[in-house]
Computed example of a mutant assay.
Amino acid sequence: MTATMSVLIAGRNARELEELEQMLLHQPGLSPSRRLITNGHSDPLHNVTELPDALVFCTTGAWEHELQSLDERPPQGRVPTIVTGPDNTAIMRTAMRVGARDFFTFPVQKPELLESLRRIAREIQPSSEKSGDLFAVINAKGGSGASTIAASLAHSLVARIEDRVALVDMDLQFGHLATAFDLQESGSLIDAILRADNMDAVALEGHMAKHKSGLHLLGHGSEQLVVSGDVDERQLQKLMLLLRAGYDHTVVDLPRQIDGITGILLEASDRVLVVMQQTISHVQDARRLLHYLTRYMGVPPERIGVVVNRWDKKLALTTADIERALGVENLTCIPNDYARVAESANLGVPLLEAAPSSVVSRSMVHMAESLSGKKVVQQSGLSRVWRKLAGA
């Protein structure tokens, strides 16, 4: 740890606080202090004007109220937290549920506590390492197939490029990407956003549904009505930083709307894929969306790609017509194979598994190569078996 990290040790047992403070005193990169809670509040950060970088919270017999107080803090008032308490599975599980990074029982082992704090320090200090790519996929017109493109792209990046990939379904009300992989929606997206301040890569992965290919999916499958105004934009930005730090590529399927939430993701994306189909009405809507992206949101044109889904060379509207109308070059055309794509979606089997030689599958793998800058990994029969076992 190069920069000094402030650590507040709080609780109601003065002996425990003193013991922990002695462990952390004179440790490089740590500035510990302690706070004996005597004001009747369970919240260890009640009336703390300057939040510490990390909190070590010593629970007591009133652990349910104490941990609940952590869970009830607003997102901007949370800090990475380590919890100590009696050797009790219920306490440990509750601590993890409310966002604790680690749980230790007394007597706390000094090396384990220091290692936990070092992990927190690495997360909150700026990193010089390159973060993973962020690809945003959005429909120019409703029903153009952006969700199918996002799912197929993410799966191709995992299955053929063999990169570590997260797929995020940002449709808060009608998201359905989990069904494309025959996965159960966990409703964890909103929870992950709320807990972004207190999560590390391991905790984030616990919120995600896992496909056997190795793809990780984060979506909102709850019946609870959520609108974009319910999402804390600062927390969403932190979640995206966590995703980019933990994955080679993050593919985000966006709803067809421009608001604060989609704006954050579109502006931060390394590549925005605008999905349309081969009709005049799609061209008109795509032109309007491109105008919004470049004029009002400041997305550079070179970061925007136009994808024509269900392309049919027999139709009168040509690629040259679309490029001229939109003022773009190098369209990406995904050929029409509606029957196979629909069957794949109904079965919950990715098209690359159901029909690996189809024209759509080949086009999506080519897109994955282009966006990742990598070539398809040639797999032997043994490696395919190993990957299947590892993903199970």
Rank of each mutant, 00 (worst) to 15 (best):
M5Q: 08
G11K: 02
N13F: 09
A14S: 15
E16S: 14
E18W: 12
L20P: 09
H26I: 13
P28G: 10
G29R: 08
H41M: 07
S42M: 15
D43N: 10
N47D: 13
T49M: 03
E50A: 07
P52A: 12
D53V: 02
A54H: 01
F57S: 01
G61T: 05
A62E: 14
W63A: 00
Q68N: 09
S69K: 01
R73D: 06
P74R: 02
P75N: 05
R78V: 00
V79Y: 00
V79L: 00
T81A: 00
T81I: 01
T81V: 01
N88E: 11
M92S: 01
R93L: 11
G99V: 00
T105C: 10
Q109W: 03
P111V: 03
E112Q: 14
L117R: 02
E123C: 02
E123V: 00
Q125A: 14
P126N: 07
S127G: 15
S128E: 15
E129Y: 12
F135R: 12
A136M: 06
V137R: 08
N139H: 01
K141P: 07
A146N: 06
A146Q: 06
I149Y: 06
I149P: 06
A154C: 07
R160V: 04
A166V: 08
D171Q: 10
D171W: 08
Q173M: 12
T179C: 11
A180K: 08
L183I: 09
G187Y: 08
G187T: 10
I190Q: 02
D197F: 03
M199D: 00
D200L: 02
V202L: 05
E205T: 10
H207E: 11
K212N: 14
L217V: 13
G221E: 10
E223D: 15
E223L: 15
Q224R: 15
D232S: 12
D232F: 04
E233G: 08
Q235F: 01
Q237D: 14
L242E: 00
R244Y: 04
R244N: 04
R244S: 09
T250S: 11
V251A: 00
L254T: 07
P255L: 01
D259K: 02
I261R: 06
T262I: 03
G263Y: 00
I264A: 11
I280D: 04
H282W: 02
Q284L: 07
R287Y: 07
L289K: 01
Y292T: 15
T294W: 02
Y296H: 14
Y296Q: 12
M297I: 09
G298R: 03
G305D: 07
G305A: 10
V306W: 09
N309S: 03
D312W: 13
L315K: 15
L317G: 05
T318A: 02
T318G: 03
A320I: 07
E323T: 04
L326E: 10
V328Q: 11
N336P: 04
D337T: 07
D337H: 09
Y338M: 09
V341P: 04
G348F: 08
V360T: 11
H366T: 13
A368K: 02
E369I: 05
G373E: 06
G373W: 10
V377K: 12
Q378E: 13
Q378Y: 08
Q379A: 12
Q379V: 06
G381S: 14
L382W: 11
W386Q: 15
K388G: 14
L389T: 13
A392E: 15
